[in-house]
């Protein structure tokens, strides 16, 4: 088993908590993990990404080679496009559909959507709206994780268990909100 994942978005959108949950699930399965993160200046509203590699065999490089990511999980549609050269032929893009516009030259959104649609396997979800409508406004990122579960090839129950362990010390309400968000994401993908 080997999955190469690129998590991306804009600094402050919470991509690292998605990585933490996947990492926890993988650790619990005794899989090898490498996860390169971005800290520092770019976290101030700039583009951010994390390379997450999971494998049943030892992993050499901390970074994912071009053309070999199995999944791009993105909190922002244009940010998903930024890493396109890293996506493998049969790879998936799981992205939030709503742009985060904090630059004056953000490209035309219809053109961004059209370019995303050219990729064979794309799931785009309005995660913020879905999170608000279902009373879990702070768990939009976990909705995205739920939608990516199939592409990640990690059992749903194992992600659920990982959420319980990761959020356990924040109390039951936080745990349940995130479990609900995970389920919402899975359903959204099934549409």
């Amino acid at each position: 088993m080997k999955v190469d994942i690129i998590l991306c978005g804009v600094g402050g959108q919470g991509i690292l908590s998605i990585a933490t949950i996947i990492g926890e699930a993988a650790m619990n399965e005794n899989l090898y993990i490498k996860q390169a993160e971005v800290h520092g200046m770019s976290q101030r509203g700039g583009d951010v990404q994390s390379n997450l590699r999971i494998s049943s065999e030892p992993i050499a490089s901390d970074l994912i080679p071009l053309g070999s990511a199995d999944v791009i999980i993105s909190m922002e549609p244009m940010e998903a496009l930024r890493y396109l050269p890293y996506l493998s032929k049969e790879g998936w893009i799981i992205t939030s559909s709503v742009p985060f516009v904090n630059i004056p030259n953000y490209p035309d959104m219809e053109a961004v959507k059209a370019e995303l649609k050219q990729v064979p396997h794309v799931v785009a979800i309005d995660i913020e709206q879905l999170a608000k409508d279902n009373g879990v406004p702070r768990s939009a990122n976990v909705i995205l994780l739920g939608a990516a579960q199939h592409a990640l090839g990690i059992d749903y129950e194992k992600l659920e268990a990982a959420i319980r362990r990761v959020f356990g010390r924040k109390g039951d309400a936080v745990v349940e909100a995130n479990i609900k968000a995970l389920a919402l994401g899975k359903e959204a993908h099934n549409f």
Partner: peptide, 20 residues
């Protein structure tokens, strides 16, 4: 030779960091 399946996207703008 490293040949990505997908070329660099066209509808892309740099997103530099900024003051909060």
């Amino acid at each position: 030779a490293v040949e990505p399946t997908f070329a660099q996207a066209k509808n892309l703008a740099p997103r530099p960091p900024q003051l909060c």
